[in-house]
């Protein structure tokens, strides 16, 4: 079991509120990712779940039991730190067994558990090395191994891949996903990297300024962002936004193209760069002037300025014959539009 429930969690540091009342349930065996920009409170939230920080108000439950005032040691959770937090003067084996020794577990059992974790993470040949003798990826494995040996109720991972280079991050991401599939243990993963969030998560919790903006599956967030922040945060390149005024269920995009929108008054119309394609010559189109072309081979990223000056990005497949300074005419499926009201909330 490993269901974690947060109820009305608030946290203040020196009178400054950083978490403003979080209610959230993470189901047993789920891999939940907390994502958001720097300072959004994701790490603070994780530390409160870990027991390293206490919430100012609210309760934390693990499997229905209130652990708000329970020490970190007694919560049965394991944490993987951003810095790995490996004991530099101990060998890998000593690092892995240190936590188990505190539980007065028999030595043979400790050895068996450490060896199991070592085999699972393919670090058996590193057991006698010290952390300083390991590469970043190897240290990361040891840090995960240290969490695994404790057989915790849930794993808490605080930006565990942020110190790795892009290539290693990609492979470690896949390994973490595989590990979660094998262990079936609840994992809470903190990251500011939306690709990590999208590829790993069963459920993504998008945070901003200490508030949950949206909780959904990765595709749920991508396809139906509930507000402008989530729409802009999830997806790369960022979603294009156009300000317009809706009259009688119609709004005009730069270039004069009219689209159907719910509601009336000021709206923001969003469309993902991948949802735009070159329009037929005579068809109505969203128009702009090309400012920059990034030809990536399989796709071409075009940066353009719409007729009203709004910056927009278009991802076109293949290698279309375009030149900087030209006018680009773009079409899209009306169903791909996201419309947000003046308060930034989704309208449909």
């Amino acid at each position: 079991m490993g269901q974690i429930t947060l109820r009305g969690i608030r946290k203040s540091f020196s009178g400054v509120d950083v978490i403003h009342g979080i209610d959230l349930t993470i189901a047993d065996g789920e891999l939940a990712v907390f994502v958001g920009p720097s300072g959004c409170g994701k790490s603070t939230l994780l530390r409160m779940i870990a027991g390293l920080d206490r919430p100012t108000t609210g309760t934390i439950e693990i499997d229905g039991q209130d652990v708000t005032r329970t020490s970190a040691a007694e919560r049965g959770l394991a944490m993987v730190f951003q810095s790995y937090a490996l004991y530099p003067h101990m060998t890998v084996r000593q690092n892995l067994s240190f936590g188990l020794e505190n539980t007065r577990m028999p030595k043979n059992d400790i050895t068996a558990r450490v060896d199991d974790a070592g085999r699972m993470l393919e670090i058996m040949d590193l057991m006698d090395r010290r952390p300083t003798q390991l590469s970043g990826g190897q240290r990361q494995r040891v840090a995960i191994g240290r969490a695994i040996v404790r057989n915790p109720t849930a794993f808490l991972l605080d930006e565990p891949l942020s110190n790795l280079d892009a290539e290693l991050r990609g492979s470690m991401r896949a390994e973490l996903a595989g590990l979660h599939d094998r262990l079936k243990t609840t994992m809470i993963y903190v990251t500011h990297d939306q690709i990590e969030a999208m590829t790993l998560a069963d459920k993504i919790v998008v945070l901003r300024k200490g508030v949950i903006e949206q909780v959904d599956t990765p595709l749920g967030l991508y396809n139906r962002p509930q507000n402008l922040f989530v729409a802009g945060f999830i997806g790369a390149p960022n979603m294009n936004f156009f300000n317009a005024v809706a009259v009688d269920g119609q709004a005009e995009l730069p270039g004069g193209l009219r689209v159907a929108v719910p509601g009336n008054g000021p709206v923001t119309i969003g469309i993902r760069p991948q949802m735009l394609h070159l329009a037929d010559p005579d068809a109505p189109a969203l128009t702009g002037t090309i400012r920059l072309i990034e030809a990536l081979g399989a796709e071409t990223v075009v940066h353009a300025a719409a007729a009203d000056g709004t910056a927009m990005v278009v991802v076109l497949s293949g290698q279309p014959a375009l030149r900087t300074g030209e006018t680009i005419r773009l079409a899209f499926d009306p169903d791909a539009l996201h419309v947000f009201g003046a308060d930034g909330q989704r309208l449909d």
């Binding site: 870990a50 027991g51 390293l52 020490s71 970190a72 040691a73 007694e74 959770l77 394991a78 944490m79 730190f81 951003q82 810095s83 790995y84 937090a85 004991y87 530099p88 003067h89 240190f98 936590g99 505190n102 539980t103 240290r146 404790r150």
Partner: peptide
């Protein structure tokens, strides 16, 4: 972080001093 890792590992304070603080 090392102390927090030790805290997560339920390490008693005397052991933290002996096994982490003193060696480092």
């Amino acid at each position: 972080d090392l102390y927090e890792a030790a805290e997560m590992d339920a390490t008693p304070p005397t052991r933290v001093f002996r096994r982490i603080t003193l060696p480092l």
